[in-house]
Simulated scan of single mutants.
Amino acid sequence: MADLFLLSKAQMRRIERYFPLSHGIARVDDRRVISGIVFVIRNGLRWRDAPGEYGPHKTIYNRFVRWSRLGVFNKIFAELARKAGKPSRLMIDATHLKAHRTAASLLKKGLFPRRIGRTKGGLNSKLHAVCDGQGRPVIMLLSEGQMSDYKGAALMLPVLPKARELLGDKGYDADWFRQALAERGITACIPSKSNRKKPINHDRELYRQRHKIENMFGRLKDWRRIHTRYDRCAHTFMSAICIAATVIFWL
Rank of each mutant, 00 (worst) to 15 (best):
R63F: 03
I190M: 00
K170E: 00
A78E: 11
K170T: 08
Y54Q: 01
K198Y: 10
R210P: 01
H100E: 02
M1P: 13
D149E: 13
I186W: 04
K86S: 09
W250V: 01
A180G: 07
H57Q: 05
L166S: 02
R48A: 13
R219E: 12
K212Y: 06
F112V: 14
G44C: 05
A188D: 05
G185R: 12
H202K: 06
W223N: 00
G55A: 04
N43C: 01
G122I: 08
R224L: 00
H211T: 10
I92F: 02
M216Y: 09
S194G: 05
G110Y: 12
G117H: 06
I34C: 06
R101M: 12
I15W: 07
H235F: 15
I200K: 11
G121R: 12
Y150C: 03
Q209H: 14
P56W: 00
N62V: 01
I25K: 11
A26Y: 15
A84V: 03
D132H: 08
D3M: 15
A94S: 15
K162P: 02
Y150V: 10
M216D: 00
T102G: 02
V38E: 11
A104Y: 07
R27T: 12
E79C: 09
K83P: 00
R204D: 05
R46H: 11
S105M: 10
K58Q: 12
I41W: 03
I226N: 02
V247T: 10
H57D: 11
W223T: 00
A153I: 01
M147V: 15
G135T: 03
E205W: 07
T246E: 07
P191C: 00
A174L: 04
K198Q: 11
S125D: 09
